[in-house]
Design a protein around this nucleic acid. Structure first.
Lengths: 213, 213
DNA sequence: GGATGACCCCTACCCGCCGTCCGGGCCGGC
DNA sequence: GCCGGCCCGGACGGCGGGTAGGGGTCATCC
């Protein structure tokens, strides 16, 4: 039996959610709350499996209390009317594993509760879509391209270039790698040539894109 | 009516998918293919709304042909038995808007087809879960911290610092922003002071982390 | 209203660091 | 041997960064 706590400032919404979820034999609503403070209290006292958490509420809102609720143990599904990017970002960073709109059909809501209770995640389709596009853009596309460009570098050159990417000066690099500053400069110079870069800044960006801290 | 093309090397799987999808009144299967080449041909000739594309196939596999299929117009849902990270990454980068496991219940499969046809996205819960965690980790954590540090900068300083992050030299920045090189240096200098940075490389990294291209 | 200060933008000069060019020692191989 | 790659080092010109200062706007205060 999956134990759920429902949090929303409108009693009507809470009642509706309770009706929907109780209709499933494997789900039971063990508590309700009307604001963030109540949500946290219930989460800590009742130790539910899942908390349905409204985003906008008077007092402490859902996004603000979400990290604490997550820390208390249960899986958190955020509920909202509008899927603003701002909301989604904060929710996912807070550790929520679900983000649903309030127009979600009852059947899918119950399915979402089961999904997150099983340790997986469930997002509204529109949210999923934008998460994917943000992933495809900033994902490993540039990273692999950067590593490709860094490939012709010697091991030593790579080590130096890495230090460059940390913002260290040539003198400091020389100290760290125990060599003459002139040597560092030579390595940097040849790295610049190989990478077709004009600045050390450009190679720093490149190394950064390649994820080589 | 949503027009679908089913692609899998095993005829039994194709037949099963067809049965499942045809059971929905708003979905019709207009074509089948057994490999990547066939998938592309069908996508270009039949112009379906959605293509269900198996990952592993003899000849041209699904992941390889996915970019071309996407370019032909239809929404692409990848189908696979194993949700390896490698698969998911390539699929999403290729432009797929769906990624489902073959153990997906029939009802959800039809729902997924409708979802992507409506312009949204649908992922298997396990995939969603890992996508979220990767987003939460490498996502806006550093980004917001970087923007925090960049906050005290003047508008003008920010513009210059942005150019710095692109690897441009002071002279080039001066040309681009139509001002004296000495001016650029002064701005950079005060930016360095405000950011507690010793190098222009460090501010370049900072701007890069803040996602300000 | 005028003085004052704070803030931002611009500019000019000086010095240290960065980058280039050159050369030397060291190892492995067709 | 000899060549080619890699790692080192020195000397020079140019770019980067620090400092000082002038002009402009706006808000505050007398």
């Amino acid at each position: 039996m999956i134990r759920v706590v429902v949090v929303d400032d409108e009693q009507l919404v809470r009642a509706g959610l309770r009706l929907i979820l109780e209709a499933a034999e494997d789900i039971t609503v063990v508590g309700e709350a009307a604001d963030g403070a109540g949500a946290l209290e219930q989460a800590q006292r009742l130790r539910p499996d899942v908390v349905l958490l409204d985003v906008r509420m008077p007092g402490i809102d859902g996004l603000t209390v979400a990290p604490d609720v997550v820390a208390a143990g249960p899986k958190v599904i955020m509920l909202t009317t509008f899927d603003l990017d701002e909301y989604v970002h904060r929710a996912l960073r807070a550790g929520a594993v679900g983000f649903l709109l309030k127009d979600t059909p009852p059947r899918e809501l119950a399915a979402a509760v089961r999904t997150v209770a099983a340790g997986n995640a469930m997002l509204a389709p529109t949210v999923t879509r934008r998460l994917i596009s943000s992933f495809a853009e900033r994902g490993p596309a540039r990273r692999d391209a950067a590593r490709e460009r860094l490939a012709p570098l010697t091991e030593r050159e790579l080590a130096i270039v890495r230090e460059v990417a940390r913002g260290h000066g040539n003198a400091e690099i020389a100290r760290r790698l125990t060599m003459s500053e002139a040597t560092v400069k030579a390595h940097v110079s040849r790295a610049l040539a190989k990478l077709h870069a004009g600045n050390r800044v450009q190679v720093a960006i490149l190394v950064h894109d390649a994820d080589l801290l």
